[in-house]
Design a protein around this nucleic acid. Structure first.
Lengths: 187, 187
DNA sequence: GCTTTTGGCTAACGACGTTAGCCACAGCAC
DNA sequence: GTGCTGTGGCTAACGTCGTTAGCCAAAAGC
């Protein structure tokens, strides 16, 4: 039987794509194996198991999110940068709900874990937004957590369809950007 | 063999407690059965299965969260009410991470689903906070979503240990309350 | 061209969710 | 009390899924 030519990166990418399609909870080793054209046990030659796969998908998602946010921010400052970052982040989560879901509840095993590095890159991207505001040294950590909570909370609530009632969601998000901008400018 | 005297409410409550202890992902029918002193298949006399159990735990969690937030708000207005609500919500999520996790990603099946009613009660509790501010009719939905996103985002990120770095988390949360208060007062 | 490594495979096991079918106990009519 | 009925336990069994063991052929290096 001919080799399929797989490697860890291919398997993880396929897993992330599959998670986006069917939902992280329905991502199964058998389904992933079928997707990449291989029998289930063969996957274990490339990833350590389901937990390892999840961690790698999470790291991939964080890297991609960091790239999306970082790229969107470039060339902007202040309110424009904030809006670009927030929109890019939300768009990423809505386009890739499965791989983003893999990032919640997963902890880096150590300081050299690729997951930790990826998380730091995403934080750096948001940090760049704050540089366009007059945020004092002692406030920057708090402001960063606030931004992260806002974006993460809104995006995950929307991805989970938790906003049942009527008002337009895009409009709410723009309102939220405006709210954060006014608050940051007033510091 | 003597009867164990179970009923759906008891099973759901035990499931919620167990989810808080071991994490929702590790809540297994066998473990729950052992906890309530019964064999696994007997649980199916009281709940429809794992998905049904999850929905019931979610509804319980939303009712409890609504009670906690609603109770904390009573007698306060403005910044005090906001702070009380936010603290009560975060405390609930941190004390009951398992049952709160059951609420994310679960959709009400219809308008008479107990889950929908419980969700509405929680929203009402946050709505009461907004009455202490001068929020216009057209802004109230957006402000509600902002508050919900902030609280949900912060609490779930903390529950997932996603705030790796140094600054004190309680301090960040108080900072966040202050930030939201200033923004709402400035409307 | 031979050896070694690597990446497939089948077979099998254990854990878990779920269903079917049985049986004892509680509650009630009489 | 005796007997009927419904309810809430139980055992047995099945299907799915994750995972491991062990085999074997294709690729890679000498």
């Amino acid at each position: 039987m001919p080799r399929a030519g797989l490697d860890p990166a291919t398997v993880v990418a396929a897993g992330a794509a599959l998670a986006d399609e069917v939902g992280l909870a329905h991502l199964t080793m058998g389904l992933l194996a079928e997707r990449v054209g291989v029998r289930t046990p063969s996957l274990y030659k490339h990833v350590g198991g389901q937990e390892d796969l999840n961690r790698r998908i999470a790291a991939l998602a964080l890297r991609e999110a960091a790239d999306a946010v970082g790229g969107a921010v470039q060339g902007y400052a202040g309110r424009d940068a904030l809006a670009a970052a927030a929109r890019a982040f939300r768009a990423f989560v809505l386009e890739h709900p499965g791989r983003y879901a893999a990032t919640i509840g997963v902890e880096p095993s150590g300081p050299d874990d690729p997951l930790a590095a990826a998380g730091r890159r995403l934080l750096d991207a948001f940090m760049a937004v704050l540089r366009g505001y007059d945020v004092g040294e002692s406030d920057v950590d708090h402001a960063l957590r606030m931004l992260r909570s806002l974006c993460h909370g809104f995006a995950t609530l929307q991805a989970a369809d938790a906003f049942q009632w009527s008002a337009d969601i895009d409009q709410s998000f723009e309102w939220l950007i405006d709210f954060a901008d006014r608050g940051l400018r007033a510091m």
